[in-house]
Amino acid sequence: MERHAAERHAPVSRWGCTNVIDNGLLVQMLIGALLGVSVYLPLAAGQLSLATPAFYAVGGTLAALLSTRWAALGAGADGSFPLPSFLLELLLAGALAGLLALLVGRLVLRLQGIYLAIATIALVEIVRVAILNLPFTGGAIGIFAIPQPFATASGYLVPALALLALAGWGCQRLEGMPLGRAMAAIRDDELAARCMGIDTTATRLSAFVLSAVLAGSTGALAAHFLNTWNARQGSFDASITTLAFVILGGSRSWLGPVVGGLLLTALPELLRPVGDVRLVLFGLVILLGPVFFPRGLITPGLLERIGGRRQEAPR
């Protein structure tokens, strides 16, 4: 199991996370939440896509390459990096991932259900092997000494939070927009949606591209935060772990994957005191979670009780 271990930052203390801000655990959790939202978006249109780690890896690799190879971005000899260049990279990584999703999506979105899921796993594996073998991505070691736009790990909290806020705001807005309504209609019944005159292909593609853009930008952020980047960042394990963020958090609202991503990213770190058993326990949580919370932790009913606002009738 690959964890996005931030080895560079101060090691987590013996008691887990007495200082979650300085050691960067909070940033890792936010990255998890962002990836959860990225998996949630196609799922909100009824598409089980596990391609998020592929786009995350593409975005991260682009950022790692640009900041270490392209002098015009202004990486300092002391490992510093100008903030505007960092933001530019987030945009470029999102754009590249989105473009890739547009190309791939046209092909794979003809597939349905489990076929789509497996095709996207294939995409993740192809991207992983490509990053491992391309002559300029550093092979198994990867790209290291990625320059830092922030002096401390906690500096990354601001862009991570901003990105998550943007994603959440976007998802919330989407619910009221024609695209979001079309996605919900396809999720409930694709055939009926097509009969209603919804362009299902375009809608599914849009959800796929949005998901990829978010994953790409998140990858760029993670590459700087982690300081090193290699092919292991996007693997089959990550596909299922990010899906678990959504399933355990709840797939009916964007808050579900956020909560799932935060909790499940923190869990292996919080379990660090128990030593090597922690990955076994993490597996147990993934095994038993869906049994006890088949609809996830965040359900429409729960949101209604907390917020007191009317949700659309839960199914």
Binding site: M1, L48, A117, I240, L243, A244, I247, L248, L279, V280, F282, G283, L284, V285, I286, L287, L288, G289, P290, V291, P294
Partner: peptide
């Protein structure tokens, strides 16, 4: 939902491998 068994079976696999 059948989708959930993807997660639970992977969880079982993770437990076993670890």
């Amino acid at each position: 939902e059948p989708l959930l068994s993807l997660i639970t079976s992977l969880g079982a696999g993770l437990v076993l491998v670890n």
